[in-house]
Design a protein around this nucleic acid. Structure first.
Length: 450
RNA sequence: CGGGAUGUAGCGCAGCCUGGUAGCGCAUCUGUUUUGGGAACAGAGGGUCGCAAGUUCGAAUCUUGCCAUCCCGACCA
C-alpha cells in the first residue's frame, strides 16, 4: 500500500465526482447504530438478508482495516495466500464436517451434479494443501493465512455487517511439530491480535473461550467493548487498561510472559463466566460490560491433521501428525464494530487509522476565485502529505456540508469560507472533540499532517 | 428454528377496520430568490400498492396461498 501510493496517481477526489449516496432518514430495517450509520453514510447497500454491496466509502474502510490486519499478520511471521470461496464437498466428507456442519453451510451443485459448497471456513482445504507438500519437521513451524469472503447461512442474519451471511474474514492456520511449539505460534497470534486491534483504534480484550475436546487454556476470543455488544463480558479493569505490546516486539523471542501477563487477569464472556473467581477480584477492579467478538484464536491439535493424514517426519525419523491452530478476525464485522465503539449523535467518528479519507475540505463558496484557490491549495498540500482528503466542492449550503462531514466521520474537516479567507485563515474542526480553530493554510496543513 | 411484526414513489409513513379517481413529508428535476450548521416560493416527474389465485359490477382495502424483510429468543467471526 505504501509503495502503491507513490505510483498510483488518480484525479483529485472531489465530492461532485464521487459516489456517496447518503440517506437523510434512517431506514426502518436498521436498528443498531452501526447499521443505521453505514446505510445513511452510503457505505453499504443490502442486497438480501445478510448480504451487502460495499459502496465506495464502505469499501475504502473495509480495505484499510484489511490492510492493517495484513500488516500485523506479516509482522508476526504469517504468510499470505488465497484459497477459493467455492470448495468441493469431498474435503468436508473427509473431516466429517459435511454432515456435522448442518444447514449453516450453503451447498451448491455444479452442472455435473457434483456437490460443492461456499466455504464457511478453510481448515480442511488448507490442511489438505499443506499435507500434500510438507513432509519434514524442517519445514515447520509455518503460519499461513488468507483474507477471503466466506458464507454461513445464518438462521438469523442481523445487525447489518456485524452478523451477515457473507463476510470477509482473515483466517490463519498454524502448523507445528509439537504442542509446545504450537503454543509459541498461538502466542504470536495472541500478540499480533493485541497490536492489530490497537492500531484499529479499538480497545479489545482477550477473554477465555471454550476449547472444545482438546481442552487446555489455548482458546481466546477478542472482544471489543460496546454497549450494543451481543454478549456480557466480565473482566478485570487492569486488563482493559493495559496497552498492546507494541509493533516493535520481537516475534522471534519468548512471548509467553506477555501472554501470561494478560491471561492471569480475569476476563470471560457469559458462557465461561465463573462468578466466584470474578468475586475474588477487588470490587473496584470488577468490570461488567457488553462485548462484540471480533477475533478468535485457538489451538486444536490434530483434529484436522488426523483425517487428512498430515504428518511430518521428525528428527527421530518417525512420522507424527502436525499440531494445528486457527486464528480468525472478522474483517467486515470490524467495520460495524468500530462504528459501534466510535460514533455520536451526529454520525461516525473514525479512528484516523481506518478513516476512508484523512480529512474533509469544505469550500463554502464554490465558484469564488479566492475560496476555490485556497481549497485547491489545501487539497494539493494535504494530498502531498499523504492524507488523502475529500474535497466537498458541491454547491450545497454550508449546513448541509457540515452535517454531511459529521455523518461520514472524517477525523478533521477544514472549512474554507469567504470570511476566513479574507483574514487569511481556514477553520479546522476535530471530529472527535468538536474543537475548532482558525489557522493559516500552512498551520492547518502542519496540524493535520504533524 | 420457535414467537412477534411489516411489505404502498429513492427514503420515512398515512390510507385498509367500513371496497368506489393512490396520498403526505423528505429526496429528485426546472425556475427565481438565497447561501458560515440539514433554505423559501412556484411548478414538474416518479407507483404492476411484495407475488399469485379467489370473492365482487369494482380490490391497496376482504379471503387463501406463496415470497421477502425486520424484531425477540436459542446458536455463531
Amino acid at each position: 500500500m505504501r509503495a502503491g501510493a507513490a505510483t498510483h496517481k488518480r484525479a483529485p477526489m472531489r465530492l461532485t465526482n464521487y459516489f456517496l449516496p447518503l440517506l437523510k432518514e434512517t431506514p426502518s430495517d436498521a436498528t443498531i447504530a452501526s447499521h443505521q450509520l453505514m446505510l445513511r453514510a452510503g457505505m453499504v447497500r443490502q442486497n438480501a438478508a445478510g448480504i451487502y454491496t460495499w459502496l465506495p466509502l464502505g469499501h475504502k474502510v473495509l480495505k484499510r482495516i484489511e490492510q492493517i490486519v495484513r500488516e500485523e499478520q506479516n509482522r508476526a511471521g504469517a504468510i499470505e495466500m488465497l484459497m477459493p470461496t467455492i470448495q468441493s464437498a469431498e474435503l468436508w466428507k473427509q473431516s466429517g464436517r459435511y454432515d456435522a456442519y448442518g444447514p449453516e453451510m450453503l451447498r451448491i451443485t455444479d452442472r455435473h451434479d457434483r456437490e460443492m459448497l461456499f466455504g464457511p471456513t478453510n481448515e480442511e482445504m488448507l490442511t489438505d494443501v499443506f499435507s500434500s507438500f510438507v513432509r519434514s519437521y524442517k519445514d515447520l513451524p509455518k503460519m499461513l493465512y488468507h483474507i477471503q469472503w466466506k458464507f454461513r447461512d445464518e438462521r438469523r442474519p442481523r445487525f447489518g455487517v456485524m452478523r451477515g451471511r457473507e463476510f470477509l474474514m482473515k483466517d490463519t492456520y498454524s502448523f507445528d511439530l509439537t504442542p509446545e511449539d504450537a503454543r509459541k505460534s498461538y502466542n504470536k497470534m495472541f500478540v499480533a491480535y493485541l497490536n492489530t486491534f490497537e492500531r484499529l483504534g479499538l480497545k479489545a480484550i482477550p477473554v477465555r473461550a471454550e476449547t472444545g475436546p482438546i481442552g487446555g487454556d489455548l482458546s481466546h476470543e477478542f472482544v471489543i467493548l460496546a454497549d450494543s455488544g451481543e454478549s456480557a463480558v466480565y473482566a478485570d479493569r487492569d486488563l482493559v487498561e493495559m496497552n498492546a505490546p507494541g509493533t516493535d516486539i520481537d516475534f522471534g523471542g519468548d512471548l509467553q510472559s506477555v501472554v501470561d501477563q494478560r491471561t492471569a487477569l480475569y476476563a470471560a464472556a457469559d458462557e465461561m463466566h465463573d462468578a466466584d473467581a470474578f468475586a475474588a477480584i477487588p470490587e473496584d477492579k470488577r468490570m461488567e460490560a457488553r462485548g462484540i467478538e471480533v477475533g478468535h484464536i485457538f489451538y486444536f491439535g490434530t483434529k484436522y491433521s488426523e483425517p487428512f493424514n498430515a504428518k511430518v517426519q521428525g528428527p527421530d525419523g518417525k512420522p507424527s501428525l502436525v499440531e494445528m491452530g486457527s486464528y480468525g478476525i472478522g474483517v467486515s464485522r470490524l467495520v460495524g464494530g468500530i462504528i459501534e465503539a466510535s460514533h455520536d449523535e451526529n454520525g461516525i467518528v473514525w479512528p484516523a487509522s481506518v478513516a476512508p479519507f484523512g480529512a474533509g475540505i469544505i469550500n463554502l463558496k464554490v465558484g469564488d476565485a479566492e475560496c476555490d484557490g485556497v481549497a485547491e491549495e489545501l487539497y494539493a498540500k494535504l494530498s502531498e502529505a499523504g492524507l488523502d482528503p475529500l474535497y466537498d466542492d458541491s454547491s450545497d449550503r454550508g449546513g448541509v456540508k457540515f452535517s454531511r462531514m459529521d455523518l461520514i466521520g472524517l477525523p478533521y474537516a477544514v472549512t474554507v469560507g469567504p470570511r476566513g479567507v479574507r483574514d487569511g485563515v481556514v477553520e479546522v474542526k476535530d471530529r472527535r472533540t468538536g474543537e475548532r480553530e482558525s489557522l493559516s493554510v500552512e498551520a492547518a496543513v502542519a496540524k493535520l499532517t504533524g
